[in-house]
Write a protein that binds this DNA or RNA. Structure first.
Length: 574
RNA sequence: CGGGGCGUGGCUCAGCCUGGUUAGAGCGCCUGGUUCGGGACCAGGAGGCCGGUGGUUCAAAUCCACUCGCCCCGACCA
């Protein structure tokens, strides 16, 4: 492609609205333009990259025997009503009406539609397993679109669905996807981790997220370099930092102590001159209308997802001040689990075995010392604690790391949720109607691009992996008006095209600095400078990411570039 | 939905508090010329109903009200 003929509107300055790196660079590099909040135009460069990503996804999905469909983004409301998600999704689902007033919605995913196809056509176990996928635009009315292409209201997603007769079959389909996803993200040149994930409101048992570490992300991943353990913070488990001081010995009885105006853990700890690890934190929560008390070590944080799993509730919130007073007779700051009747108390497992700790006394300005969980109140232990900095791996005690990440893919075992709610059954070997077990697997196409940009950029712009860069190489004659340079560039351009290299030819009549800056900005992985060294029959081959420059004879340039590109591209699966 | 910020040529921003000639700058863009190894230089030029509506005033980019849009934090998020 001739750069002079292309629409690549690069920007010298960062647009004011862009905060995260990928957003800034995609805007500056002329990849995208915003149309509205969370709605973007993908211009030529973005489209080229996204198509390359999609091609990789297709090849790897096809390689595991998945079949590509294309399903509507516009769905009748009944489809979603049937599964119950029309209500569950709330405002996240875009809803509209047709001219006759019939309710429709825009698909966020396609479990329902796929299930409808399946239940109409899959009749026998002989037709299983099936893996169906599509690459489609999805819509979500995000409460807060942000971070450029990372959280948007319209985006492209590869979603696939597996249908199996039995859990063992699902295990196979799931594993196929896991392997395919690794191949896809490897081929896209990303550094990622597959982590254990919370299965969420979707139901289902096992679930893994593919995460890329970046500050632009919104998820946290806990990982261990030594053991390879990796999990979403929502689900991660760890060994807490041991208590700062040992618990007082003896079979002591709870005893009130006056703690005037000492409310927060820090205040109480300072006042009593004991570390936060010797305190108990009591939280009053209203889950699906029922009050609960969650008890944790003073320095620990409640994990919302773990609390939800422990109680099995749909949603919960902290109790209002009046509710706390009404239920426990004291304000937040003096609450504790001792002497409570009729409220379920859930204690974090980190308190198991502790004794003679300090908790609130359920009496303003008083705390209790010598509280022993399980003795002074009934302790029902659950893992409620969010993993914190400094924790160590459960089994080995190896150090854990907490990193901010962005989710680029998710695979999970759906189970029978849709088969049951929507009636997807087949006849098994014995002619008995059996519900089909499903899996669901997604990849955010734009997020793969964003992750590539986030991962690989410097002050000059992006340096995308070869496999997803819009072009593989850019030819930059230093001075296009120089007939000799132009002739050499023309020739190299033709040679590279003949070798099927994705080549961009910067034939613009601009000063070299501008062309170098632009090339660096849009992130083309290789650049060939054709300039004064041509007098010696040489051109420069520059690697964008490392800035490494080698001189090669013009005649060998095309082959050298081809070889460099080949060397970086992992092969497709078959 | 709660909190904060911002809307002025394509981009980045100044001007607004303290109303008053023709609304500015840099970058970009167009024309001509000189340049040509990391965002060149000279000369000339085009481009803005100051987000919208209503109000106050002799007079509004500037003050007031409403409204729309965008960004950020929080809440939320298969």
């Amino acid at each position: 492609m001739l750069w002079s003929r292309l629409f690549i509107p690069t920007l010298r300055e960062n647009p004011a609205e862009a905060e995260v790196v990928s957003h800034q660079l995609l805007l500056r590099g002329g990849y995208i333009r915003q149309l509205g909040a969370g709605i973007y135009n993908y211009l030529y460069l973005a489209q080229r990259s996204l198509l390359k990503i999609q091609t990789i996804v297709r090849e790897e999905m096809d390689a595991i025997g998945a079949q590509e469909f294309y399903l509507p983004g516009l769905n009748p409301a009944e489809v979603w009503q049937e599964s119950g998600r029309y209500d569950v999704m709330g405002d996240n689902l875009f809803r509209l009406k047709d001219r006759y007033g019939r309710p429709l919605c825009l698909g966020m995913t396609h479990e329902e539609v796929m299930t409808i196809i399946a239940r109409g056509e899959l009749r026998s176990y002989k037709q299983l397993p099936q893996i169906w996928y599509q690459i489609q635009t999805k819509f979500r009315d995000e409460p807060r679109p942000k971070s450029g292409l990372l959280r948007v209201r319209q985006f492209i997603m590869k979603d696939s669905y597996s249908f199996d007769l039995a859990p063992e079959g699902l295990d196979v389909s799931y594993e196929k996807h896991r392997v395919a996803y690794c191949r896809i993200f490897d081929r896209c040149g990303l550094d990622y981790v597959a982590v254990e994930a919370h299965s969420g409101a979707m139901g289902g048992s096992q679930s893994q997220e593919f995460m890329v570490a970046t500050n632009a992300g919104e998820d946290y991943v806990v990982s261990c370099k030594q053991t390879g353990y990796a999990a979403n913070l929502e689900k991660a488990v760890s060994r807490p930092v041991p208590p700062a001081v040992p618990d007082p010995d003896g079979d002591l009885k709870p005893e009130e102590i006056h703690t005037p105006n000492q409310k927060t853990i820090e205040e109480v700890a300072a006042f009593l001159k004991i570390p936060a690890t010797s305190l108990m934190k009591s939280l009053v929560l209203i889950a699906d209308g029922t009050p609960y008390i969650a008890v944790l070590r003073g320095d620990h944080q409640l994990s919302e997802t773990k609390f939800q799993s422990a109680t099995g509730c749909q949603e919960f919130r902290p109790a209002h001040p009046e509710e706390m007073r009404q239920l426990l007779g004291a304000d937040a700051g003096s609450l504790g689990p001792v002497g409570i009747n009729g409220i379920r108390i859930i204690t974090d497992a980190a308190l198991e075995g502790r004794k003679n700790m300090v908790s609130g006394a359920n009496k303003d300005d008083y705390h209790l010392k010598n509280v022993t969980p399980g003795k002074d109140y009934t302790a029902e232990y659950h893992d409620l604690r969010q993993v914190a900095e400094g924790d160590t791996e459960v089994n080995t005690g190896a150090p854990l790391e907490i990193r901010k990440t962005v989710e680029i893919g998710h695979i999970f075992k759906l189970g029978y949720k849709y088969s049951h709610s929507m009636g997807l059954n087949v006849l098994d070997h014995n002619g008995v109607e059996t519900p089909v077990i499903m899996g669901s697997y997604g990849i955010g196409i734009e997020r793969v691009l964003c992750a590539g940009v986030e991962l690989f950029s410097d002050d000059n712009g992006m340096s995308l992996p070869v496999s997803i860069a819009p072009f593989e190489v850019v030819i930059t004659p230093v001075k296009i008006a120089d007939a000799g340079l132009k002739a050499a560039a023309d020739k190299l351009y033709e040679e590279l095209k003949a070798l099927s290299v994705d080549v961009l030819y910067d034939d613009r009549d601009l000063s070299p600095g501008v062309k170098f800056k632009d090339a660096d900005l849009i992130g083309v992985p290789y650049r060939v400078n054709i300039g004064k060294k041509l007098a010696d029959g040489k051109v420069e081959l520059v690697e964008r990411r490392t800035k490494k420059t080698v001189e090669v004879p013009v005649a060998e340039a095309a082959a050298a570039i081809k070889a460099a590109i080949e060397a970086t591209l992992p092969k497709a699966a078959h």
